Amino acid sequence: MKRRTLFALPVISLALLLTACGGSSSNSSSSGNSSSSSQEKTTEVYTTKVTSIKVMPDDSDWKITGTTDAPDGAKIAVTQLSDDPLDMENSCEGIDGEDGTGNASWPKVKNGKFTALVDPIELVDDPDNYTKVGYTQKAAVVAISNYSKSWPDGLTSKAAKAINKANPKTVKFTLSSSQVKYIDSLDDDDSSDKSSSSSSSSSSSSSSKTKNYRTDVSYDSLARDPKTYKGEYLQYTGEVMQVLEDDSYTDLRIAVNGNYDDVLYVELDNSILHGKRILEDDLVTVKGVSAGIISYKATSGTKISIPGLEATEITDSGTAPDDYGE
């Protein structure tokens, strides 16, 4: 009996030791998983303030800029709000592939600011509406942090629910005549050549670069009947009276043919300047889409309304001759 008792003691002790070690290991593992789980970051939705919405030259996209309290790296999403998360899709992308690959990617927050391109076809998502000049679509513009999905994956149902829960204010996106014309031109290209998507894309790109800009519309005609020419591709030459610049856009007031009574307001994206600047007194030839009448306030507080042009091309010939316009 003693011999059996003595023999059993180390076995029991060994069993107890193994149980203790196993329990300790299990508890340690559980503790580690709990710690890892607690460190996982949850997706958060931040509201934004859109400060500018402009139509890109030779394209149908809206270019938006804005500010937000979201941290650096948060992804910007633009979507219609819906009670059904499955109906909510992202309609924006970064500028020239912000992921460094040149491919479409999420626009991201940097130093509290962001810039994004919004596709009207994706946002409106209805052929009966995205071919109507002046049609307005409301959409939420939000920033999403700790969101790991790539741009092609879009918004998950969980992310869409989080956006709805944040209850963001919506922004109005209004279709311009140049956007509708561009979208119509895509339809024309598709119907004329359906052999392949690449040939259609090439045709569309070629079409946008070979537009015929009218030179027969006088300033007087444009000023008197702006509705008739709104959306038309026009060309004017004149002397720069004033330059207003920011990081993304440049606005000019031009004296057409040197006549300071015939002032044209020109809006252009800085991308078409290729790093150069337009200066006052320069002689320029500008091509673009008639924007109807542009109104602004003079320093005296007086409201001034003049014809406007959304520039797609500009040629700067340097300082205008002293006798230009005489």
Rank of each mutant, 00 (worst) to 15 (best):
P321C: 07
V78H: 04
W106D: 02
V180A: 04
D59G: 04
T43H: 05
E326V: 12
T299D: 15
V45T: 04
D246N: 07
D188I: 09
L252K: 06
Y182H: 07
Y130V: 11
Y130S: 08
G94V: 02
I272N: 02
T228Q: 14
K158C: 08
I293R: 04
K287M: 12
E310Y: 06
G73L: 11
F173G: 00
S197Y: 13
Y147M: 06
T210V: 13
T65D: 00
Y265C: 08
T65L: 01
T67H: 01
N259L: 04
S157Y: 09
T5F: 15
S34K: 15
Y233M: 01
P168V: 04
K194G: 07
V284T: 08
D99K: 14
V50T: 01
E310V: 05
N111A: 09
T156Q: 07
V141N: 00
I76E: 01
E40S: 08
K227S: 13
P168E: 05
G32W: 13
T42Q: 14
S221C: 09
A166L: 06
E310G: 06
Q39P: 05
G22W: 11
G325A: 14
I12T: 12
K194A: 09
A8V: 12
T170Q: 11
V142Q: 01
K169R: 08
Y229D: 11
A311G: 04
K138A: 06
D269H: 01
K110S: 10
Y147G: 03
F173H: 01
I144R: 08
V180P: 01
A143T: 04
D316F: 13
K227W: 03
L268C: 05
D128N: 14
I144C: 10
Y219S: 11
E267H: 15
F114V: 00
D316C: 10
D187T: 07
Y236F: 14
K75M: 07
D128Y: 09
Y219F: 13
S145Q: 07
A255P: 06
S37E: 12
D190E: 12
F114E: 00
M241R: 12
I278E: 03
G308H: 09
K108E: 02
T285S: 08
T315E: 12
V133Y: 11
E326Q: 14
S201W: 12
N90K: 04
D99C: 10
T67N: 03
T299A: 13
L283R: 07
I294P: 05
S36K: 06
Q137C: 10
I278N: 02
D190H: 06
K211L: 14
E44K: 05
V217S: 02
E93I: 01
Q179F: 01
A162H: 08
T47H: 02
E89Y: 04
D187E: 12
T228A: 11
K161F: 08
D220N: 10
V243W: 09
L283W: 15
N257L: 11
S148Q: 05
A311T: 02
W62T: 00
D269P: 02
D58P: 12
V263G: 09
N164A: 06
S202Q: 15
D187K: 07
M88K: 06
M1R: 13
S176W: 01
E267M: 13
V266L: 11
K172L: 03
L234H: 03
I53R: 00
L234C: 04
S205M: 14
P168H: 03
G275A: 04
S207V: 11
S36L: 03
T136W: 12
T101G: 11
G22T: 12
T42C: 13
G238P: 10
E93N: 09
S305I: 01
